[in-house]
Amino acid sequence: MAALGDQSEAPPPPPDQQAMASQNKPISNIVIIIAMQTEALPIVNRFQLTEEPNSPFPQGVPWVRYRGTYKNLNVSLIWPGKDPVLGVDSVGTISSALVTYAAIQTLQPDLIINAGTAGGFKAKGASIGDVFIVSDCAFHDRRIPIPVFDLYGVGLRKAVEAPNLVRELNLKVAKLSTGDSLDMSQQDESSIIANDATLKDMEGAAIAYVAELLKVPAVFVKAVTDIIDGDKPTAEEFLQNLAAVTAKLDLAVEKVINFINGKCIAEL
């Protein structure tokens, strides 16, 4: 038994108190998670990040960490890398969930930023090049038509509330729906409409799930590359607009990080 006044065996504060403390602590350690190399490299260059030669991740995984300091922030950008067999970007929910979990466990960030491109619905007000902050994330391709399991499949989760950031940077706010396919089946479309989503991507809700599970706030910055309810094939429009829209994403991420610098979560 510890002597009176000895705090060496004092229990940690309750989770609610820990969460409150983290909300009011200045943000100093940010992890940016980006699915594609084309999306990642402009941000790497803008913040003068360098690739970590000694990966903190398990041997054999293709995940890449870029790191550096910017103003008062330690910044890491995690890219899931290229598929070891096919050599394409490791897009989708599985890679994103894995790298998010590994990054949180290894780097202990104060905040996660998932930056990337997305499809948008013109019927919901999206246009090519628009940049959104995401308010809610859900899945549209996890259909489990059993009571309660259906809600688990949708997996609705809220991003960190950032009203000051949205107002200061004059960004649009939208709901995001996530699935593992670039195209959209009729069933997917029905689920996306049910999710009231303006945006569709292949990572966000998976990152939101892991971030909530491990109690790390997450901000989602999405730029529109293709109009889902437009008249052009999705893959063609996505590739046509990727470079130009990635440049807009890069600028938006810089503005977001400049706003975050010196603030705590509660001030976002």
Rank of each mutant, 00 (worst) to 15 (best):
S190F: 14
I104L: 05
A138H: 12
I104F: 00
Q105W: 04
N114P: 06
L98P: 01
K158L: 11
F132K: 08
A194L: 13
S127R: 01
P109T: 02
A102W: 05
I146P: 00
D141L: 00
D183M: 05
K124V: 01
Y152P: 07
T100L: 02
N164M: 03
R143I: 10
S191F: 06
I144C: 12
V131A: 09
L199D: 11
L199T: 03
I128K: 04
D180Q: 03
F132T: 02
I193W: 06
D110H: 11
A103M: 13
M184S: 10
V160W: 13
R142Q: 13
Q187C: 05
K122A: 15
V99F: 02
Y152T: 12
T100S: 10
E168I: 02
A102N: 02
M184W: 11
V154I: 05
E168Q: 01
M202R: 11
K175T: 14
F132L: 05
P145C: 00
R143E: 11
F132W: 13
K158Q: 13
A118M: 09
G116K: 07
L156R: 13
G119K: 06
D150P: 08
I113Q: 13
A174V: 15
L199A: 04
G120A: 13
I193A: 02
R157E: 09
D196L: 15
P147Y: 03
F121V: 00
V134H: 02
Y101L: 06
F132G: 03
K124W: 15
P145V: 02
N195R: 12
K122D: 10
M184C: 08
D180E: 04
Y101V: 06
L156D: 06
T106W: 14
M202N: 09
F121Y: 10
E203I: 12
I193D: 13
L151T: 11
G204L: 08
D183Q: 05
L169G: 07
V160D: 01
D130S: 03
R167W: 01
K200Q: 13
T100I: 09
A123W: 04
I144R: 14
D180H: 03
D141N: 03
G116F: 07
A174H: 04
N114L: 13
K175G: 06
T100K: 07
D180W: 07
V131W: 07
A126T: 02
N170V: 14
K175L: 05
Q105S: 04
L98K: 03
G119P: 02
S177N: 10
S191V: 08
G129F: 00
